[in-house]
Computed example of a mutant assay.
Amino acid sequence: MSRDVPAPGSAGLHLVADLPLLRPEEQVFTAMLDGWRNQQLARNLAFSTIEGREKAVKAFTRHADAFPWAWSAHMLDEWLADLRALRHLKRSTLRGYAEAVRSLCAYLIDPAYGWAAECHSRFGTHPIQITHEWNTALHLQEAECDPAKRAFTRAELLAFFDHADEQVHQVRGGGRKGWLPAFRDAVLFKTAYAFGLRRNETRMLDVVDFSRNPHAPAFGDFGVCQVRHGKAKKGAPPRRRGVLTVGPRAGVGGMDWIVEVLQQWTEEVRPAFTHADSPAMWPSERGPRIGFTQMNTRFATYRDALGLDGGLDFHSFRRSYVTHLIEDGWDARFVQEQVGHEHASTTALYTCVSSDFRIRTLLKALEQTTRAALGPNQQKRNT
């Protein structure tokens, strides 16, 4: 970067020198947030990340009743303690809020952006870094999800899908409206499980994202699911991957049942939606694409109606996909590629094998050990 060119988000881009401000504190704070946003955009961070950080910073500002040039570490301590003690927020959420404040402070104290000098000239003080190792939570382990979160058992999953199908029949049989959305959501849930998809990956699917697999022509137009909105690394675009439809092997059932489900959906039911001309695989009743609220509400309604515990969420479909493939003997590397994990250790965290599987594995290992031990003696007796 040239020394003569101001950095993206510098104070000079937003405040005109020697111009009196009507509400200096509020206007300077707004200019700071605008500059910070430009800096993060220059780093290619996702819009959702930037917006979430800005909301966190504004919430801290309201709690502290002070602007960044008057913030202190004590104010941050009180805010985070309040969020944990009274609102019972999760550790990962608190760390995200603290990271938002840390990021803004780092931006404001950087000489390249000129905010320290600007604040000192206007308010007689300047921002400081208020987040440190001694007052913020550290990321100490790879997985910090709620311990209650888990995969479906096979019986729970079957009951969930049966209940979803039954709701379609009940609504349609009663002559009531709403069977189309109920049918859509039932297929959506099954698709999330059959391809091991995250919630946003499922929501953002388009009709054209399904295609043929030349090595498995029996699956027709649904041999491959192209995921174009995979979870991105910080500052990177969404990751893409192709997920193969898994067929049965060695007497173990696969996920090929999803082909018939998707065929019925795309050929018979989806065209009945008002927004069927939308490219989205899951059109809404009022818009071109289903929203997260609709997905979450329907899932929670079905889960609670069956009396399943709250540890099951939409992501449990993905956990179940990994778990069931591993239990059925699929290669761990293949499963890792299917779900798009960079590291095998991440896939291992998703694997919640059942006690029956562990017992079968143990008995198989014992049988092999016994056979190996008796093998030489058996050979001697036979000779």
Score class of each variant (00 low, 15 high):
R3W: 15
P8D: 07
P8Y: 07
S10V: 07
H14D: 01
R23S: 11
L33E: 05
W36K: 01
Q40V: 02
A46F: 14
E54T: 14
V57A: 07
F60G: 01
F67W: 07
P68S: 04
A70S: 11
M75W: 00
E78W: 00
W79C: 03
A81N: 12
D82A: 12
D82K: 10
L83D: 04
R84V: 14
R87A: 08
V101H: 04
R102Y: 12
L104R: 01
A116P: 08
T125L: 06
T131Y: 05
N135T: 08
T136K: 00
A137G: 15
L138S: 15
L138E: 15
H139D: 15
L140M: 09
A148D: 14
K149E: 15
A151C: 10
R154V: 12
E156I: 03
F161D: 13
H163F: 14
V168P: 07
R172Q: 13
G174F: 04
G174S: 11
R176D: 10
F183G: 00
R184L: 04
D185Q: 07
A186P: 02
T191N: 03
A194I: 04
E201V: 03
D206L: 05
V207S: 05
D209I: 03
R212H: 10
F219H: 12
D221K: 13
C225K: 00
V227D: 08
R228P: 07
K231I: 01
R240P: 05
R241S: 01
A250P: 00
A250S: 12
A250W: 01
V252H: 12
G253M: 15
M255W: 02
M255R: 08
D256H: 01
D256A: 05
V259G: 03
V261A: 05
Q264P: 00
T266K: 13
E268H: 14
A272F: 04
A272E: 14
M281R: 01
W282A: 06
W282S: 06
P283E: 09
R289V: 06
T297G: 04
T297N: 13
T297Y: 10
F299H: 06
F299K: 03
Y302N: 07
G307Q: 05
G307H: 04
F317N: 02
Y321N: 04
V322Q: 00
T323K: 00
H324C: 01
L325R: 02
I326P: 00
D328A: 09
D328G: 04
F334R: 05
E337V: 00
Q338Y: 06
V339A: 02
S345W: 11
Y350F: 04
R358E: 13
R358T: 12
K364Y: 01
E367M: 03
A373K: 13
A373V: 13
N377K: 14
Q379I: 15
T383I: 11
